[in-house]
Design a protein around this nucleic acid. Structure first.
Length: 405
DNA sequence: TGTCCACTGGAAGGGAGGGCTT
DNA sequence: AAGCCCTCCCTTCCAGTGGACA
């Protein structure tokens, strides 16, 4: 690219009409003051947590709802307000501690040990990242917790991911710790994307964890519109976002189980595209582009972060798919995977393990795998891909840098 | 009606990478 | 340094299974 065109890019950028006033408003980090259509849930949570202000222990809460229905947002909002009130309330705040942990964070809090070390870290102590017996960590956590009189509120976000991975033992222990505490009190707020999750855990844990339940239904298109409008006025300059664009973002996100995060992402990316092209107003086409880019980016990012063998398995699926196969079976994939390993000098894993890797790929949504029975011809998983051709090309591009094809 | 396929998914255990205690 | 413990990723072994087919 020559000097001239570079110049013109920068010129365009500085001269072009600005669209964003404050882009951060459209990210998850931002907590709006007003959360439309969640008044009921907020009130519910607030009522449940209010006893903290009188130094009593609130009930544990179980919160369900799909992604982007405002679970974390509302919880944080209530806790923030709670702390504010406590501060005004002559120093009860000192006795309240809140901890927020996202259980899904890979390599951070997705096992019992790592979650505990996170909890301990939140009390300002550090623990080696491997090596100690788990009960030692429990002990330490217990000591830190009970070191002084305090009311601890522990938010475990995406708790279903943790439990499906390592079982409910940790929840049992955490709820039991509470009964042994002498000075302090521990309240657990579990947040789950999966509604049926609570049915599959130990009944003792269930009853203690879901003393109170709060449900976050998906937003419909109209509610999403309200949410977007609320933020548009803060994030964008006036008259840069037509109503039709808001409606489109809302409609697209409503199709996807009413996900507000998606709606906001669409708007943000559409804005970025418009701004980069020197438009002063966002158009519906920009939203379309934003959608396909969001999908692509998400998928690519997930694939990039997979371990080598998962990538190899995914590549095997992709190859089979490219060969025109639909409803690919575990066996086919394993054969293909074995070839890939051979060509690339990888030590191949067993079919048992590959079977688990396929389930993992299914869990993170890269493939669709269903266990079916073909009668005489056995029982297997049927694996399907639903990715656009364009995306498949990009993925192949990415993987060809890592594998001999 | 029973058989039997091609796996699934549970269980147990090993070894690599690590830390603790003595 | 020895001995013991952990987690994580993986292997080995195997019982279990839904439904097409004889």
């Amino acid at each position: 690219m020559g000097q001239i065109s570079l110049m013109s890019i920068f010129q365009n950028y500085t001269n072009g009409k600005k669209i964003f006033k404050d882009k951060d408003i459209l990210t998850i980090k931002f907590t709006p003051n007003n959360i439309p259509h969640r008044e009921k849930q907020i009130e519910q949570i607030a009522l449940i947590l209010a006893p903290v202000l009188r130094n009593e222990k609130p009930s544990n809460i179980f919160i369900y709802g799909k992604t982007g229905t405002g679970k974390s947002l509302c919880t944080n909002h209530v806790i923030e307000k709670l702390m504010e009130t406590a501060k005004q309330n002559n120093g009860t705040a000192e006795n309240i501690k809140t901890i927020y942990i996202n259980c899904k964070m890979r390599k951070v809090s997705d096992t019992e040990y790592r979650l505990l070390s996170q909890l301990i870290y939140n009390f300002g102590e550090e623990v080696p990242y491997t090596g100690l017996p788990t009960d030692r960590l429990y002990q330490k956590f217990y000591q830190l917790l009970d070191a002084k009189e305090q009311n601890v509120i522990l938010v475990l976000d995406e708790i279903d991911a943790l439990v499906s991975k390592i079982g409910d033992g940790i929840l049992y222990n955490l709820t039991r710790i509470n009964q042994e505490l002498k000075k302090s009190k521990l309240t657990i707020i579990g947040i789950s994307n999966n509604i049926s999750f609570i049915d599959n855990i130990d009944p003792r844990v269930r009853s203690s964890l879901s003393e109170e339940e709060v449900i976050f239904p998906p937003y419909n298109a109209n509610e999403l519109k309200d949410i977007l409008k609320e933020r548009v006025s803060l994030a964008f300059y006036p008259e840069t976002v037509p109503d039709s664009v808001i409606a489109k973002c809302a409609a697209l996100a409503a199709q996807e189980h009413g996900d507000a995060r998606k709606a906001l992402d669409l708007l943000r990316v559409a804005g970025e595209i418009a701004e980069r092209r020197g438009f002063s107003v966002i158009t519906e086409e920009h939203v379309d582009e934003a959608e396909s880019r969001l999908d692509t980016d998400k998928t690519i990012e997930i694939i990039k972060t997979q371990p080598k063998h998962s990538k190899a398995v995914f590549l095997a699926i992709l190859n089979q798919y490219r060969n025109g196969l639909k409803n690919i079976q575990t066996g086919d994939i394993f054969d293909q995977y074995a070839q890939i390993c051979k060509k690339n000098g990888l030590k191949q894993l067993t079919q048992r393990r590959v079977s688990d890797l396929i389930s993992e790929l299914d869990m993170i949504g890269l493939v669709n795998a269903k266990v079916i029975s073909k009668g005489r011809y056995g029982r297997t998983r049927e694996i399907n891909l639903n990715l656009s051709n364009k995306l498949i090309e990009k993925i192949e591009d990415l993987l060809s840098k890592e594998f001999v094809l």
